[in-house]
Design a protein around this nucleic acid. Structure first.
Lengths: 177, 177
DNA sequence: GCGTACATACTCGGATACTACCTGTCCGAGTCCGTAAGG
DNA sequence: CCTTACGGACTCGGACAGGTAGTATCCGAGTATGTACGC
């Protein structure tokens, strides 16, 4: 019962990308520098969000980068969690009730056992709660708690500095950390 | 986002122990044999249920074993999951928004970020759903789906064969698998 | 001056080591039972 | 016959290896850019 560390990074990145102008992209290196994490490791998670699931779009080559493939209001926290952690439920029923000496015939176990049902029901509640929250909601919530707008201002400054539209202007050198 | 395999074993064991007569105990070896799992490994989890949390009571020595420390109606699935997986939430907020170059002063981050709040809220829903289900409910549910009572009969046969009250009778040899 | 071709540098993508946790196992401390000796 | 002491065996408890998934990193494939050359 432990989520990977990349989930937090991925959510923050997606939230940041939601502030991009239409068509603009941001490189993984810039995202990693902004959050103070390893570039190579962040790439691993961004790939999971782009190739496997279709949450992000990628633009290769110089002045390439990542961009949301859907509006922020159409991306839920559940989408990101499932993309990174896999679709399999956390609770895995090994049907140990069928093991041991002289087990009963299989026909007695047509229905999944009540324990697995209860565990999976709880997990459905968890996922439903995550599916209810979209990236747009998260960004709105962050802005609400950011009374003087300092945090939002930092994000906007980052975006205006590092976002770029493929096919226009010169790629700025990444600011040294 | 993956629960350990021992969670299922522990829940099945507790459900089985709920059928014991008052004061009787069952050894870990018998429980492991009934479920077809490793004795030593099951012991590891049973210890977590007995020493750390107080869900199970232990009786040492010959004809010792495990027994519920509380009524089955007072033990929830959440109690077992937390005992085995730890009390820490699955989502860990590393506050990466405070990292990176020229971070904002700490006073801007007095409140936890909205992302962590949303993730933890979903986890509270998960835990609330698990806390709502007690072992007594699980056993009742198992009996309801067990139309001809074959599964329950197997459990009862096991209990009458392997349960024992400390200070009475001879310890029966464990049936070979 | 304009168009084209090329070398360049930057980007993402997948393949490769390292670490921590979960899984599985072992041996030791403690306790109760059964037996045997003694009164 | 009853009491007492002892040996034995069984139990749980904590300490010890192995395997798998997460973490961190590296190098290679691909592409748009910027420049230089030719017309």
């Amino acid at each position: 019962m432990k989520l990977g560390e990349g989930v937090e990074q991925a959510i923050h990145c997606v939230a940041l990308l939601s502030g991009l102008e239409p068509g603009a992209v941001v490189s993984a290196a810039a995202l990693a520098a902004f959050h103070g994490v390893s570039v190579s490791y962040l790439l691993k998670h961004l790939q999971a969000l782009s190739s496997s699931t279709g949450l992000l779009e990628t633009v290769p080559g110089p002045r390439g980068g990542y961009r949301l493939a859907r509006p922020a209001s159409a991306i839920s926290l559940l989408d990101i969690v499932l993309a990174l952690e896999g679709l399999a439920p956390a609770f895995r029923c090994a049907e140990i009730r069928q093991r041991g000496p002289d087990p009963l015939p299989g026909r007695y176990f047509a229905k999944p056992c009540g324990i697995a049902a209860a565990m999976l029901k709880a997990e459905r509640a968890y996922r439903a709660e995550l599916a209810r929250v979209t990236i747009a909601d998260v960004v709105a919530g962050l802005a609400a708690e950011d009374s003087d707008g300092a945090i939002a201002a930092r994000g906007c400054a980052f975006l205006t500095l590092h976002q770029r539209r493929p096919g226009q202007g010169a790629a700025p050198a990444l600011k040294e950390t």
